[in-house]
Design a protein around this nucleic acid. Structure first.
Lengths: 187, 187
DNA sequence: CGCGCGATTGAGTAATTTCAAATCTAGTGG
DNA sequence: CCACTAGATTTGAAATTACTCAATCGCGCG
């Protein structure tokens, strides 16, 4: 039971059965259906989510009601509006399930308690945060330097599995191009 | 002595004199002149840098030799190619001094030792990493959702002091537009 | 004065968007 | 098995935006 989460922790730190059991007390589990919102604009973001199965999108609607996808999140990824989460404030994003999704979620209080009471977890969070930061920087560089076509090909290479699971319209909203332009790339 | 660094740590964690003195043993100090490179493409990135004074740009040159600025970094910021730093590998970036700059720098080994021997520092690094990650996400959203003009105005609002210190050509390379387009925004 | 660098302006071109219409696809019910 | 619908994708054409390349301007400094 809870193997996905435990394996995920143990990719970074070793945990005894007791330690993992303790960590688990800080989490709750929830299942969402396809199309459900985990949070919506103006909600206070109280939790961070570890996805044990399923697929989410974190997106933003601009003034023209056009959707922009900040990130996709699938199995073994963490997702939240981390800005709103860390400040326990209102989000401007939507976190929506593209598939039926099961998550472990933790409150900011739980996150802090866990970090203090099981200091290894700080190493774990730090590793995740660094990885996320480095990934974001790569995405920024990609947006600055590459054409839509190159960006699309990077995406296919980096996330081949996502290609099967999300529509091209969504990929376009992630890459920052219109769906029509994406459609015309190979014609 | 070393007040900038100590104050910077103490914005997040409290340190005794002894603790700070210990932390300091993991750092070295260096001064760079305007125009100096701290590292260049293909260098192994061995250090992370805390800027006590001055101004840096972290940039990338694409296949057409066009420069793209990943970030500016000024007093009380950390800078490095964190991907290359954490993996102790070759960078594809240039880190260049836009002004004469003084830094405290630390090796990956020092970073790890400091984290282990003074566990509070993990809290500090974690805080910084989270902030960096959140900031990167905001920049991604800005690149996805806003026009060059809006992006420029966001930049002016967010970093008013930088406006005085970097040329518009550099700002354009940071915002992802040509300098001519930036120049034409208000005409 | 004249050089050098950054900023601006002009003109033409290329890329992308927008809006609209047509096509394709998967699933549903008859 | 076929017809039908909803959603996604593609295509077309015009409009917009940003880029490139070249020339000019403005200013600080030797």
């Amino acid at each position: 039971m809870h193997k996905t989460l435990r394996n995920h922790f143990e990719e970074v730190i070793d945990l005894t059965d007791q330690e993992f059991a303790f960590a688990l007390t800080k989490f709750e589990i929830k299942d969402f259906g396809k199309g459900d919102f985990i949070f919506q604009r103006d909600d206070i973001v109280e939790h961070a989510y570890f996805i044990s199965s399923g697929l989410l999108k974190l997106s933003y609607f601009d003034d023209n009601a056009k959707e922009h996808i900040v990130s996709f999140a699938m199995e073994n990824w963490w997702e939240s509006d981390f800005n709103a989460f860390f400040t326990q404030s209102e989000t401007t994003y939507y976190l929506k399930c593209l598939e039926a999704t099961s998550v472990y979620y933790i409150s900011l209080e739980g996150y802090r308690e866990l970090s203090e009471e099981l200091p290894k977890m700080k190493t774990f969070w730090l590793q995740k945060s660094n990885t996320g930061f480095v990934g974001s920087q790569r995405r920024i560089l990609s947006l600055l330097t590459t054409s839509p076509k190159e960006r699309y090909e990077q995406f296919l290479k980096e996330y081949p599995s996502l290609t099967q699971r999300v529509s091209k319209t969504q990929i376009a909203a992630y890459l920052g191009v219109s769906r029509e332009t994406l459609s015309r790339l190979y014609s």
